[in-house]
């Protein structure tokens, strides 16, 4: 009975994503969708993946991470280098192959960064853990500012701090990557979203996922029944990093210019906002809130200069209205109580 309900919940989530994809395809096909909104499709896919993967760390594993953009940055730059190397250095024609290779490399390197960062970070607790993830995010951005990569024939050359490498420059320190071939496509973005959802939802539903949530709910109790806390925390953290790196690679190959400054602290916060507004630990909520909030500034164009101001006010009001007990009760009395059965299912 319970299994069936869980399966149904999963299928609904996938169904929503697939339906949204088909709807977008129809809107593009009939030419109803505006140009600016069409340009938002790949970023929306990327942010959905980012939000779902961050939700794995924040919601399922219960660790507040403020440096998620760092993994995205690692994925983006390694993905760009990988794709350019494969297409220019090796001479692979197919853009799809290059893109998939870039996504794999991005995910792998971000995962490696996740392991390196996870070992010290997961020893800490609470706010201290949060500040260390913030610090790592800033370190990654700072180090990216100093990395120079060039393609000399078919070999990659790396430089640290010192520019002036032979061959065609791929990464140019603080200027980032310029002249990137736009390889990302909405279809691949959609597949990546499905992949991310598949990985995260199945992880949550597995024995490992239950162990991760048990550790979140009570570390001491979980430890005393013999769960290896470090192992499960690392599992969640690194999976989250890999998925963020893959999303980052897709994001990097969607723009012709990518600079390290694009993956600032603000980007980490933006993704965290998606997660919190969608509901911490609620994967479907992350998908919906990432979609709506990425489109929101675009939809608020009518307010032109005031749109970020409106965005900030909306954010504050939503937080106050959803979290203040008095207001919550007042709203609850006005609305019919249809959410009651859904609450129990969670």
């Amino acid at each position: 009975m319970k299994r069936n309900r869980k399966l149904a919940e999963k299928l609904i989530t996938f169904g929503i994503v697939i339906a949204a994809f088909l709807l977008c395809k129809i809107l593009i096909g009939t030419g109803v969708m505006s140009r600016s909104l069409r340009g938002q499709l790949i970023p929306i896919c990327v942010y959905i993946c980012m939000a779902v993967s961050l939700n794995l760390t924040v919601g399922i594993s219960g660790e507040l991470s403020l440096g998620h953009a760092g993994f995205m940055s690692v994925g983006a730059f390694s993905g760009i280098v990988a794709a350019m190397w494969l297409s220019k250095g090796v001479g692979v024609e197919s853009q799809l192959h290059c893109l998939l290779f870039a996504i794999l490399v991005g995910g792998a390197l971000a995962g490696a960064a996740g392991v390196v960062i996870g070992i010290p970070v997961l020893r800490l607790r609470g706010d201290y853990l949060a500040i260390v993830t913030l610090a790592f995010g800033e370190i990654i951005r700072n180090v990216m500012n100093c990395i120079y990569v060039s393609l000399d024939g078919s070999t990659l050359r790396f430089g640290f701090i010192n520019p002036g490498l032979p061959g065609k420059i791929l990464l140019n320190g603080p200027m980032g990557a310029t002249g990137v071939k736009k390889m990302a496509s909405f279809e691949i973005g959609f597949v990546l979203v499905l992949f991310t959802l598949f990985v995260v939802l199945n992880l949550i539903d597995s024995r490992d996922g239950r162990a991760i949530m048990a550790i979140r709910d009570s570390r001491i109790a979980a430890e005393s029944v013999g769960l290896n806390v470090t192992k499960y925390k690392m599992m969640a953290f690194v999976t989250s990093a890999v998925l963020a790196g893959m999303a980052g690679a897709l994001y990097g190959l969607n723009f012709s210019t990518v600079a390290p400054a694009m993956f600032k602290f603000d980007t980490s916060i933006l993704v965290l906002v998606f997660v919190v507004l969608g509901g911490i630990g609620n994967i479907r909520g992350s998908v919906i809130s990432a979609t709506l909030l990425t489109m929101l500034p675009e939809l608020l164009r009518a307010f032109s200069d005031y749109r970020m101001l409106v965005y900030a006010i909306v954010l504050i009001l939503v937080m106050i209205f959803t979290n203040n007990p008095k207001l919550k009760n007042a709203v609850g009395r006005l609305l019919p109580r249809r959410g009651a059965s859904g609450k129990e299912a969670e």
């Binding site: 924040v58 507040l64 916060i269 965290l272 906002v273 919190v276 507004l277 911490i280 970020m308 101001l309 965005y311 900030a312 006010i313 954010l315 504050i316 937080m319 106050i320 959803t322 979290n323 203040n324 007990p325 008095k326 207001l327």
Partner: peptide
């Protein structure tokens, strides 16, 4: 209004406030 709310909700509100001040 968020005195009893979970820490993350307050954190996001503070971030919203930061955006609000910057954009004002």
């Amino acid at each position: 209004p968020l005195r009893q709310a979970p820490g993350l909700a307050v954190l996001i509100t503070a971030i919203g406030m930061s955006y609000l001040l910057q954009n004002s």
